[in-house]
């Protein structure tokens, strides 16, 4: 059974300087509250893994807490580029950032292989593409049966995975619904996992095929309403698209970024997330 603890305690017990960490969620259910708590704790030298680094890693990278990024699409979805990550790659500000770059197919396969306890993932991919030339972790392999030329990438086994979900019951079983991304794989592949949920309930009321993570796969659980904002939680609040558009301006300037982080992350606590989603709960007009 997982520990029901405060977010700060969950971070303290599960995330350490130098860890390999995945804060997963494919556009949906991105664990922003957890990342902000990690930023406040100042835990650094992290190797960050995410298919889509999104604003959540733009913030961690911009704060100088990451040494390496493993990723497959580093854009602000629907808006443009991730400007803090760009600054780190192009100008080494605030520190250099090592990149290990893959395709979505490769990382999805690598998470699955991690969950399956395999050392690597084999798939058909990267045909005619340049990434294998710049990423030594993409290797050709031959199918021993058909002779077909395929590729292998190392499986992903994070020290710790953070995800956000709709609800957990009092035993610590977790339900996630909607766009599922690779969260189930990311939790099962990790040594430890921390889950924030919108609410803790008596009964999950999950249908037989629902995506449920049994309590014994989760290390720590904490309730954070709105914990995915500006991403969203299906059925509870909408994606704050306006904020994603605004982030492009905030992140365009180093000073503005630092001031924003100071005010809205460092000087805040996770309680603020419930307020941030108030205007996103009503149905779209």
């Amino acid at each position: 059974m997982p520990d029901f603890v405060s977010l700060d305690d969950a971070i303290k017990a599960n995330l350490t300087d130098g860890d390999v960490v995945a804060f997963e969620g494919f556009t949906h259910l991105i664990p922003f509250a957890a990342a902000h708590a990690a930023i406040r704790a100042g835990i650094g030298d992290l190797t960050l893994i995410r298919m889509t680094p999104d604003i959540i890693y733009d913030q961690i990278i911009g704060m100088g807490l990451a040494k390496k990024l493993i990723f497959s699409y580093a854009g602000n979805p629907g808006v443009g580029l991730l400007r803090r990550m760009r600054d780190a790659v192009e100008n080494e500000w605030p520190r250099p950032l090592q990149l290990e770059e893959h395709s979505h197919a490769a990382l999805a396969n690598a998470f699955e292989a991690g969950a399956a306890g395999l050392p690597s993932a084999v798939f058909r991919g990267y045909q005619g593409a340049d990434l294998p030339q710049v990423n030594p972790n993409i290797k050709p392999v031959r199918c021993p049966f058909s002779g077909e030329s395929l590729v292998a990438v190392p499986s992903i086994r994070p020290d710790v995975t953070f995800i956000h979900g709709q609800k957990a019951d009092r035993k610590g079983n977790v339900l996630i619904e909607g766009i599922l991304g690779v969260q189930k794989e990311a939790v099962l592949a990790a040594r430890r996992s921390v889950v924030t949920v919108e609410e803790i309930v008596d009964n999950l009321n999950a249908h037989p095929n629902a995506c449920v993570l049994p309590s014994w796969t989760v290390t720590a659980i904490t309730e954070v309403r709105g914990g995915a904002h500006p991403s969203y939680t299906h059925g509870i609040y909408r994606r704050d698209n306006q904020f994603y558009i605004e982030w492009d301006k905030i992140a365009a300037d180093r000073k503005r970024f630092q001031e924003w982080m100071e005010k809205h992350v460092l000087a805040e606590s996770e309680g603020v997330f419930a307020k941030r989603i108030q205007h996103l709960k009503s149905p779209r007009t």
Partner: peptide, 19 residues
């Protein structure tokens, strides 16, 4: 690639979509 003038988002699904 190692010293980009502009770092763009990257491939996402494209490398496999293309084939």
């Amino acid at each position: 690639y190692g010293k980009p003038k502009v770092r763009l988002p990257g491939g996402g699904g494209a490398p496999e979509i293309a084939t």
